[in-house]
Amino acid sequence: MTTRALDPVQRRALRQRQLRRAGTYALATLIALWILLPIWLIGTMAFSTSRDIYAFPKQIAPIPFSTETMEFFLNQQGIMSATRNSILVALLTLVLSTLIATPAGYAISRYFFIGRDAFRLSVLAVRAFPIVILAVPLAVTFIEWGMYDRVYSVALMHTALTLPTTILVVSSVFTSVPREFEEAAKVFGCNAWQAFMRVVLPLVLPGIAASAIFTFVMSWNEVFAATLLTIRNRTLPALILYQLNKSSLQFQYAGGFFMLVPSLIFIFFIRRYLFNMWGQITK
């Protein structure tokens, strides 16, 4: 910046600009703190000794650092198997949801057919619907069919929960690949399947992976349906919820933190695609 004398009007204008910028930064940081601080605090608890957990006033950093609380939680009866169940359910949901949704997303994005709008709108409506509420009738049905309290029945429920979102996301990802790419591939000698595999798939793979991760997170987090559909084969949130009233603070803090960690990691990977997922609702 050139060093020259600025008249007062200029100086004020410049200062106002800088102030506003600084204000925006302050605001941005404040909001970030509002989100991060509670996570930090429960993290602190999760890595404190049991004495510190019941201490008052509370420390704001895990000093001394201790895995005692986490270990206590993980060694509780059923936690490990519930974690395994949760991962299994989430993976099953991810696979089912992606496999079923991808063709539908492709169809919505690429074909014009009678009923396309109706189908898309009903998917939209289903997504807006509180699907977990369907857990009650499904639980009753699963009992009748002998499918109650099974890992895969929770996954079936979760797939119904995630399917509409996945369909819409996948279709928006496909829409972002110009149809001309596919047509060019066909002109240069691919059939429809080859054009899809060689040109479209590599381009949409990241988007579909993001949507799959999101599916995983949704399933990992879901508690209502999982609680209703299981008794012995609880998923992690279901187990924690069930034991909440009879559990210690250690259990709650460590459990809360343990459930929260995957989202920290997964959201990082899919942050670019978040707008793909929700942005297209209005379009």
Binding site: M1, T2, Q10, A13, R17
Partner: peptide, 18 residues
């Protein structure tokens, strides 16, 4: 905004004005 230099409109320096 320009990084450096000056913009005048009439006899007013407006370089940093909104």
């Amino acid at each position: 905004l320009v990084d450096s230099g000056r913009i005048m409109i009439g006899d007013r320096d407006v370089t940093y004005l909104p």
